[in-house]
């Protein structure tokens, strides 16, 4: 397993909701970063077509998705009959981030992702370390 999940980029081909400079900037930066990644033309279209690629993505929890709002992405997978696995892959929202921020989130090492940090916090809570830390402050 590499230090980063596989990256899946959605080009949102049919709408201008993701700014062109963000899409172009993310593709450019991922290309420069020297990582392997996958791109799909439009997750909405694939969901409506029940595209089997969605099943393959849903079966691989080790993926980071560059698309739009996580709630919408989650809904698209459910609509296609292939809900995202639990814990859910991280969805990087290119509608809200600029190209630099989105690429940084996509290339972030696995243990620095918000999901990993959340899991770590839960572990700390379970073991009681968090409470001790809390008492100290």
């Amino acid at each position: 397993m590499t230090d980063q999940p596989r990256i899946l980029y959605c080009h949102c081909a049919f709408a201008q909701v993701i700014p062109k400079d963000v899409k172009q900037g993310v593709l450019e930066r991922l290309g420069e970063a020297g990582v392997d990644f996958d791109c799909v033309p439009d997750l909405c279209e694939m969901s409506a077509n029940r595209d089997p690629i969605l099943q393959q993505i849903a079966e691989n929890p080790d993926v980071r998705i560059a698309a739009c709002f996580p709630r919408a992405v989650r809904g698209l997978f459910v609509a296609a009959g292939h809900p995202l696995p639990q814990p859910e892959p991280e969805v990087v929202n290119m509608r809200m981030l600029n190209a630099e921020e989105a690429t940084a989130a996509l290339l972030r090492p696995r243990d620095e992702s918000p999901l990993a940090q959340q899991e770590e916090a839960q572990t700390v809570e379970t073991t009681g370390t968090g409470a001790r830390e809390g008492n100290r402050t």
Partner: peptide, 22 residues
Amino acid sequence: NSFRVELMAKLLERGLPISLAR
């Protein structure tokens, strides 16, 4: 790099999934 970005965008707009393999 700029060629790669332009080509990827054109292929995606054509409706084709792409993988970049290094």
